[in-house]
Amino acid sequence: MAKTSMEIVMSDDLKRRLSAAAEKTGKTVQEFAQEALYTYVEDIEDGVVSDVALSEEGLTYILPEGERVAGLEHSIYEASRKTA
C-alpha cells in the first residue's frame, strides 16, 4: 500500500500532550498519531453504519452487512491499517 505524509498544524499544548501520551505508551509520536487517526476514522465510519441502519426503518444489520450497505467495506480499511 502506498504511503503519504501530511503536515498538521497544532497548538503547542496539543503537541506537548501528544508527545507525552506517545512516550507513556512506548510509541513514537508518528505511531501514536497514526493510531489515533485510525481510531477516530473508524469511529466516524461506525457512526455512518449506525446512521444507515437507523434510517432503514424495520431493518437490522449485523456490522459487516451494515458496513457493506453504507459503502464501508471493513476489510478494506482494516487491511490499510495493518500495512500502515
Rank of each mutant, 00 (worst) to 15 (best):
M1E: 01
A2G: 02
K3V: 10
K3E: 10
S5K: 01
S5V: 08
I8C: 09
I8F: 13
I8E: 11
V9Q: 04
V9A: 10
M10H: 06
S11A: 00
S11K: 09
S11I: 09
D12I: 04
D12P: 05
D13R: 12
D13Q: 11
D13A: 07
L14I: 12
L14Y: 08
K15A: 15
R16S: 15
R17S: 12
L18D: 06
S19C: 08
S19P: 02
S19Q: 15
S19M: 05
A20S: 12
A21I: 01
A22P: 01
E23Q: 13
K24I: 06
T25S: 06
T25D: 08
G26C: 06
G26L: 04
K27V: 05
K27Q: 15
T28M: 00
Q30D: 15
Q30S: 15
Q30P: 03
Q30L: 12
E31C: 01
E31L: 00
F32Q: 01
A33S: 15
A33P: 08
Q34C: 03
Q34M: 03
E35G: 02
E35A: 11
L37H: 00
Y38N: 07
Y40W: 02
Y40K: 07
V41C: 03
V41E: 07
V41M: 12
E42T: 05
E42F: 14
D43S: 07
I44P: 02
V48F: 10
V48M: 10
V49M: 14
S50F: 08
V52E: 03
A53R: 12
A53G: 01
A53T: 11
A53I: 06
L54E: 14
L54N: 09
S55M: 05
S55H: 03
E56Q: 08
E57I: 03
L59Y: 11
L59K: 14
T60G: 09
Y61Q: 04
Y61N: 05
Y61K: 09
I62K: 13
L63N: 02
P64N: 08
P64A: 05
P64R: 06
P64H: 09
G66C: 02
E67M: 09
R68Y: 11
R68K: 12
R68T: 10
V69C: 01
V69G: 00
V69Y: 04
A70R: 07
G71N: 06
G71C: 04
L72S: 07
L72T: 12
E73F: 00
E73P: 00
E73M: 07
S75Q: 14
S75E: 15
S75L: 07
I76G: 00
Y77L: 08
E78N: 03
A79F: 11
S80F: 02
R81S: 02
R81G: 03
R81M: 07
K82C: 03
